[in-house]
């Protein structure tokens, strides 16, 4: 896939009256003005994919899918559910491609928002239905069994606690402290002011502390 993704191609676009002219010179342009996919912006790749270039979709998936999966895994503490969320988010991106407008938003920003919303929806439904303890994560070969259990316990506790917060607080805390985004970035993703982000993250952290106050020892954060 990497080889195909690095294959050269160009991006289309232009005015209708010149469409026939462009079509005539397109083969020359493709030969003379090839741009490696790896040098293209996410938005250019999305437009190229919308024009039918599957290699552009592969390059986009290589860039964006790991981040989407990581974001969902940290929020959900459930690998299978996180994969479903990441796939769903990417599917929405593919559907959005033909209507993607120049300068509307960064693709990565848009994806953060979609994954975050999908995770919040999932956590809310899970709170009503399946307890998180019933979900098993695949073992990480890099960790011992004890460390893996500790990691799973912490991730599960945090995910459950996020589920008890107001949605906007949970989103802001996750984007700030799990994804490491800046307050202006979060403000753009959540479509709110920077001051609101600061307020949401502060209140969210206090709420988390209250929810998890009695679980220090269980999670390995006690003073013993």
């Amino acid at each position: 896939m990497a080889t195909a993704a690095k294959a050269g191609m160009t991006v289309g676009g232009g005015h209708k009256p010149f469409a026939r002219c462009r079509a005539a010179i397109e083969p020359i342009r493709l030969v003379l003005m090839t741009v490696p996919l790896t040098d293209m912006t996410d938005a250019d790749l999305l437009r190229a994919y919308a024009d039918g270039t599957m290699a552009a979709a592969e390059e986009l998936a290589q860039r964006l899918l790991p981040g989407a999966l990581a974001q969902a895994t940290r929020m959900l503490a459930d690998r299978a559910a996180a994969e479903d969320v990441a796939q769903d988010a990417m599917m929405r991106l593919w559907r959005q491609a033909p209507a993607w407008r120049e300068g509307e938003a960064q693709v990565s920003t848009w994806l953060y928002r979609v994954v975050s919303n999908l995770c919040i929806d999932f956590i809310r439904k899970r709170k009503r239905n399946v307890p998180l303890d019933a979900v098993a994560d695949p073992p990480d070969p890099g960790e011992s069994a004890a460390d893996q259990m500790q990691t799973n316990a912490r991730m599960t506790a945090l995910s459950e606690a996020l589920g008890q917060l107001p949605e906007r607080q949970a989103q802001a805390v996750a984007l700030r402290h799990l994804e490491g985004l800046s307050n202006p970035e979060i403000a753009e993703i959540m479509d709110i002011s920077v001051r609101s982000v600061e307020s949401l993250t502060a209140r969210g952290k206090r709420a988390l502390a209250a929810v998890l106050a009695g679980r220090k020892a269980e999670l390995g954060y006690d003073d013993a």
Binding site: A57, L65, E83, R95, A97
Partner: peptide
């Protein structure tokens, strides 16, 4: 806790990538 969980960086396996690319190939309106 937030710092520890933030360090988790799962990597998509080939099966997930294949599912995503299959979606891309059959997305409507293309």
């Amino acid at each position: 806790l937030l710092s520890d969980v933030a360090q988790e960086k799962p990597v998509p396996d080939t099966a997930l990538m294949a599912r995503v690319m299959a979606d891309a190939a059959r997305a409507p309106g293309l």
